[in-house]
Design a protein around this nucleic acid. Structure first.
Length: 492
RNA sequence: GUCCCCAUCGUCUAGUGGCCUAGGAUGACUCCCUUUCACGGAGUAGACACCGGUUCGAAUCCGGUUGGGGACGCCA
């Protein structure tokens, strides 16, 4: 057997943002292609006209780009061009091709026109369920003459094209790349639809035609497609086409072990982007949902994954998407960033939050982000920290009330404000701040948390947070004074 | 209901018949660092779903039970 070129595809239907489960499918295909020196194709499954939109397609493409999963063939994000010689890559533009294949299947008796109404279908379904059988379509039109059926169609009677499966009494054996041998009895499915009554082809059909014509060698997709694979094998067989190799990866589940749903938080890559996750972190995390590093490393780059990727290490059971661990991973990536890079990534979030910062120079930006780096789990956390530096957002938090009620607090704060006032210059060095703190201590006799917590409240409005000796040098005298007097005023 | 898939700490997983009194990561807890909170460091608790079989030997192979999930669409 000749060595076939490795060609894999990711085939989303453009009905919204890219789901993290979809992203993982795309990723595994991408990794496999890159590891094998093969090609990674983007095909758009938009035969469900009602739900597919051009807008969604753009979103999916931009999510893939954000993740860094670049495709070799398929539509490009400008919406105009396509790359590759097996196009078009949008199924809605390939209708003629499917129709030809459908005609072929009708002609050789592997498919037929069916005129059953929804009511008839439902009655049959109920009957089979009552008998404890598979509720699969068994159509009286199965053996109708093709010409007769076409006449019927011409007369205006709505009909679909169904695949003829009832006579295929045998087991289909799939040698799944991740599951091993899977045996499907042919009666697991009924006579499924190939062409809708409006002439539009459906998923299972387009998928086979395209995978064949686009010379796809391996199909890595989610486990939910397993029953579809039987239908697709039947079509391949009917057309005497060679099967690609299939691998069905596990499902991505929520904490309640159900398919991931929006109820429990973000599910799309775009949402994670908005919540301040780094694409590298999301990718790394998602890689580990069903695949493991041969040396059990947890943090590794896309490049390293490409080098090491092997379908043998794909895990067959469902994986719960642990948002807490994702957060941890994101914080690891954040900390590995240079101050400059982290600032660049954080800045857009600060702008979006409309924060007014005490200084505008880059030097200040980098040294401030260096402080917050070890506190941040997501870029959005940066907003919280910088908000503390924005005077217009300053407020005395409820957690501060206990500290404010302490007996020495008032004296400490009066002294603190007094010393700030006499300080020469608008900013403070760490040493200058420590000196002031020391003087407050000596003059008031307060020490320990009686000293530090009131000052912290006077700086950030709450008793816990970043070290003051690091924070104060990032602030201005004007700002500190204003805050101190505000807190002092609240004591009266 | 029918068919298919799956089954190791709460979670992600390592493990392909002896290296397993089951390893790592995360989360939890404790301690250290720290005049707060984090970060960091050290440590503790925590799993082979169950029952049979094969074998000198089973987390690993086989069968069954149970549990979970998926599919049963003119969605993909």
């Amino acid at each position: 057997m000749s060595q076939k070129k490795i060609r894999v595809r990711f085939a989303p239907s453009p009905t919204g943002y890219l789901h993290v489960g979809g992203a993982r499918s795309a990723l595994y295909n991408y990794l496999f292609a890159r590891n094998q020196g093969g090609e990674f194709i983007l095909r758009i499954e938009d035969t469900d006209v009602a739900r597919s939109t051009e807008e969604s397609l753009k979103m999916v493409m931009s999510d893939l780009k954000w993740l860094g999963l670049n495709w070799d063939e398929g539509p490009q994000s400008d919406g105009q061009t396509e790359i590759g010689s097996y196009g078009p890559y949008k199924q809605s533009e390939r209708l003629d091709i499917y129709l030809d294949v459908a005609e072929e299947l009708l002609k050789i008796g592997k498919a037929y026109y069916c005129f059953m109404t929804d009511e008839e279908l439902e009655i049959q379904r109920q009957k089979f369920i009552a008998e404890g059988k598979n509720p699969h379509v068994s159509s009286p039109y199965e053996n109708w003459d093709l010409e007769k059926a076409k006449q019927e169609l011409k007369s205006g009677r709505p009909g679909v094209v169904r695949f003829k499966s009832q006579h295929l009494k045998k087991d289909y054996i799939l040698n799944d790349l991740v599951r091993g041998e899977v045996r499907f009895p042919s009666d697991m499915v009924g006579d499924f639809v190939l062409l809708r009554s409006d002439g539009m082809p459906v998923y299972n059909f387009c998928c086979v035609v395209d995978d064949h014509l686009m010379k796809i060698s391996h199909v890595l997709r989610a486990e939910e497609h397993l029953p579809n694979t039987l239908r697709q094998m039947m079509i391949y067989e009917a057309m005497s086409w060679e099967f690609p190799l299939f691998g069905h990866i596990s499902l991505v589940l929520d904490e309640d072990r159900q398919k991931m749903s929006k109820r429990r938080g973000a599910t799309s890559c775009f949402q994670f982007k908005e919540e301040g996750y780094l694409p590298e972190a999301l990718l790394n995390f998602v890689t580990l949902l069903g695949w493991s590093h041969p040396e059990q490393k947890e943090i590794f780059s896309l490049e390293e994954t490409i080098q090491l990727f092997n379908v043998n290490r794909l895990h067959p059971s469902g994986a719960v998407f642990d948002r807490v661990k994702l957060k941890w991973m994101n914080s690891q990536y954040l900390r590995a960033l240079s101050n400059e890079d982290l600032w660049k990534k954080t800045e857009p979030f600060l702008k979006a939050a409309n924060l007014k910062l005490p200084y505008e120079d880059k030097q200040w930006a980098f040294s401030s982000i260096a402080v917050f780096k070890t506190y941040m789990e997501t870029l959005v956390d940066g907003v919280t920290f910088y908000t503390a530096l924005d005077d217009s957002k300053f407020e005395i938090k409820p957690e501060a009330s206990e500290v404010l009620a302490w007996e020495p607090t008032k004296v400490v704060l009066s002294e603190w404000a007094e010393l700030l006032k006499v300080h020469v210059g608008e900013s403070f060095t760490e040493a200058e701040f420590l000196k002031i703190q020391e003087v407050v201590k000596v003059k008031t006799g307060a020490k320990g948390k009686n000293l530090f917590q009131p000052i912290r409240v006077a700086v950030i409005g709450q008793p816990h947070g970043t070290e003051l000796k690091i924070l104060v040098p990032l602030m201005t005298k004007t700002s500190l004074l204003k805050r101190a007097s505000q807190v002092l005023a609240s004591l009266k």
